[in-house]
Design a protein around this nucleic acid. Structure first.
Lengths: 339, 339
DNA sequence: GTGAAAGCGCTAACAT
DNA sequence: ATGTTAGCGCTTTCAC
């Protein structure tokens, strides 16, 4: 492993000059620059990033905290974050919290130990008081998560609009008894979605019946279970918003096995535009999240914060989803922006 | 940001002693140890990882090179790699090559610049000569990839066995005209799979007809295209191995739209056990890769290499897949090991 | 059992 | 335009 010193010696110059060439500083004569470059090539010199990090007080690494990588939405998000980061010459460390507050805290410490320049959180398991303390050490950006009254940038999709648009679509398709699924009401994002959904219903003089409201629903098997509840309900709804493509697929798959015809017997709406939505028969009406745009913005914002060295500031960066209307709610499919 | 010096001063001791406490060295009196710990807590001291990396010549970071994160198989692999790495206190930097040899080279340089202690490659886009040169700087482990005559550890699944088992299963189900899809023949892994497949056919006195052999096939739409080729072929095969769940799903979805009944009109086998395989109707017979085991082994091996500081050595760590027999090839499903 | 001092590889005042 | 020098924060001989 050759060092900057070796290069300097071989070129017959000082470490400073070599460093200047390395960092494209002005005030280096063409002549010496060539000498340095030759020496570097001859030695196969590459700067040591630990030394640079120590000296410059920056690592060029961003940590991404994510509950579970293999969840299709999250893997798409990571994919886009990686692309955006690499365009700005940042590396991404991937940290799987597995929805554990303890792991989340451990990973946030990467900021304290200066192993990373910033953290992107795609969900939040701890009390904000705990997270907030970490802002003394570096920037934190929320991507795909909203928390009220906190001083960090947040990048997210307007869930209220998408909830509203979905309900509106179902109402316009003639449905009057509509079921709703959610994975919880503790997240601001999910609350907003529900609020938008209910608003559209209210505007049409409708509401969600008690027996048509399902909580803590997220997997394929949850979907299958829900179908069975509907199946045994003599006054079952004519449409259901599932909040998740997996749940939608589970419901549809089970419904078909029991002889139901979708959407005639039950219209189904998913969420996230996973691959299955176009593979199922019928293809599933779903919400396309602007993953690429959100990822690019999150990286933009955090890189900006890193440079400005100003970590506390409330900013909201809001994007709009698209409703992809497919066979599970209609015969003819089309695209509709939720705006 | 407090440093080790600050802690030393506050505790009225030397940097050395603080460092000893930090690294659990022996020969520190209980009394002073307590003093140090108190001081650290008082200051909220956390060691700076750049300084440690520079001094110790190790970063505790492993780079994972992956073609595309959102591919379900790869996202599962990353998930498991992250879990295994974090158990050994390593962080993972995720590098998306997008099948580009240039990006791959850029990322391999992380080894030279000492930004990472080792690299796990899940595919390989460059000539091995180029990769090999990087072994002077740190360990490289292949996970899910085989390259002949190279001096690195390789962790993989026995593709020959799985190809053999799949063909055997189709033959035993009574099929005599069987189609084969592959995403290419340049990879040793895919070649092995094909060899095993053909061997089982040969043993039954069968072979793959020219028109039943499909190359460069990997996506849902590829699957749909293939179905149309079969559809217009008056002597179409009775079974098809697709090499990919996406392709299998594409074929099935399109076949059903054209009135075919699966598996009666066509038996279909996928690969990877993605979520869709259990959602499609019929559920898809597929190969379950031992992702978790391979990931754990890959981390084990690379951590070992890092410690031993011996990077060149040919080792093969082979695992066996499981064939999940489902509705797309049979009426009654069951699990069969490919061993 | 504890401390003084050297140095990992790099950059940036500062001086020339 | 180029070089000298002082650290960044940490670990580790070596000496006591």
């Amino acid at each position: 492993m050759s060092t900057i010193e070796d290069v300097a010696k071989l070129a017959g110059l000082s470490r400073t000059t070599v460093s200047r060439v390395l960092n494209n500083h002005p005030y280096v004569s063409e002549e010496k620059r060539k000498l340095v470059i030759e020496a570097m090539e001859h030695l196969g010199y590459v700067p040591n990033s630990s030394a640079r990090s120590l000296r410059n007080r920056k690592t060029g690494i961003i940590a991404v905290l994510i509950p579970k990588i293999s969840t299709p939405f999250f893997s798409q998000l990571i994919e886009r974050l990686e692309i955006a980061a690499s365009e700005k010459n940042y590396q991404l460390i991937i940290c799987q919290t597995q929805y554990s507050d303890k792991k989340e805290r451990t990973y946030l410490d990467l900021l304290k130990t200066k192993q990373v320049d910033g953290v992107i959180m795609t969900s939040c398991e701890n009390d904000w008081k705990i997270i907030d303390a970490h802002l003394d050490y570096g920037p934190i950006v929320l991507c795909n998560e909203i928390i009220e009254n906190v001083e960090v940038p947040m990048v997210f999709m307007n869930q209220m609009k998408s909830g509203y648009t979905i309900a509106k679509h179902l109402i316009e398709s003639g449905h009057r008894k509509i079921a709703y699924c959610t994975n919880g009401t503790d997240k601001v994002t999910l609350q907003a979605r529900e609020t938008g959904f209910k608003r559209a219903l209210a505007e049409a003089g409708l509401s969600i019946h008690r027996e048509d409201y399902f909580q803590h629903v997220s997997s394929i098997s949850d979907g299958k279970n829900i179908f069975h509840q509907l199946y045994h309900n003599c006054n079952s709804p004519t449409a259901i918003f599932t909040g998740s493509d997996s749940v939608a697929a589970g419901i549809i798959s089970e419904a078909k096995r029991h002889g139901w015809v979708i959407p005639q017997d039950l219209a189904v709406v998913g969420f996230d535009n996973m691959e299955i939505t176009e593979l199922m028969d019928p293809m599933i009406t779903t919400v396309i999240q602007p993953v690429e745009t959100m990822a690019a913005k999150a990286i933009d914002v955090i890189v900006d914060k890193i440079h400005k060295k100003q970590y506390r500031s409330r900013e909201t960066h809001e994007f709009t989803a698209t409703l992809a209307i497919r066979e599970s709610t209609l015969v003819n499919s089309k695209l509709v922006a939720t705006s």
